[in-house]
Design a protein around this nucleic acid. Structure first.
Lengths: 120, 120
DNA sequence: TTGCAATATATCATAATATGATGTATTGTT
DNA sequence: AACAATACATCATATTATGATATATTGCAA
């Protein structure tokens, strides 16, 4: 599977989990491939969850009680539909709050311009 | 040296370099300890560059030609004042643009609310 | 004046995690 | 029949922040 990430790898670290939890919360239940397609679509290809990252993450989140899944047969193919547990819902809220706050703080440090915006 | 980071470790990954470059660009020249104090101050303690992260990063950036430094003796103590090279200035711009775009994209995926904002 | 906090640097083993490579198999299209 | 897309998976590697640890100076308060 090929990649095309617009951002340096480092920036994306830690983002995967938040994205997965947000999408699952929003759509109820989704399977791995569907998740990766959805992200690609919503970011116009800018973020691509690689399967080498996604599937291990889904396994880990399941092991940690954040997700559960049910297997659904589509012909001879088996899909694993994942959804949030109640613990997962809480975790999602925590991570979203954290991300919001993180972005706010980063913006303050990084995009402040001492020369032009002394106001506010 | 003690820590108190409000964010999960993962979120901070990749952020250190951008912060360092931005601050150096803004202040001309700074030494390691000064950098960590500045960040702590500007983020009200929310982000704390640990010396175990900062110094290796400064060494690496120097090795990569992004930074240079000059040693200044303050009494018996020696400070290393770092500043951006011209390559470092370019790198700073690149990383800032990347960060801007990254935040915009992440916000679109993560903070979109399908229920309340079908418009646009 | 003694001891502690702050200043200032540094290194290293460890942990976490995304990645690329690689593999298997099915389904739909040309 | 061949190929792209669908759908899952594993693993060695690379990157990087962290905590622990170390050294030494300086200023301040008891």
């Amino acid at each position: 599977m090929y990649c095309c990430i617009m951002y340096s790898k480092e920036l994306l670290k830690g983002t995967l989990e938040v994205i997965v939890l947000k999408l699952l919360s929003e759509h109820g239940k989704m399977y791995g491939y569907e998740l990766s397609q959805k992200v690609k679509e919503e970011t116009e290809g800018k973020i691509h969850l690689k399967d080498g990252s996604l599937y291990p993450a889904l396994h880990k989140l399941t092991k940690d009680g954040i997700l559960t899944f049910e297997e659904v047969s589509i012909g001879k193919r088996v899909r694993k539909y994942y959804k949030l547990t109640s613990k997962g819902e809480e975790q999602k809220e925590t991570l979203l709050d954290e991300m919001r706050d993180f972005i706010k703080t980063i913006e303050k440090v990084i995009f402040s311009d001492l020369k032009t915006s002394p106001a506010i």
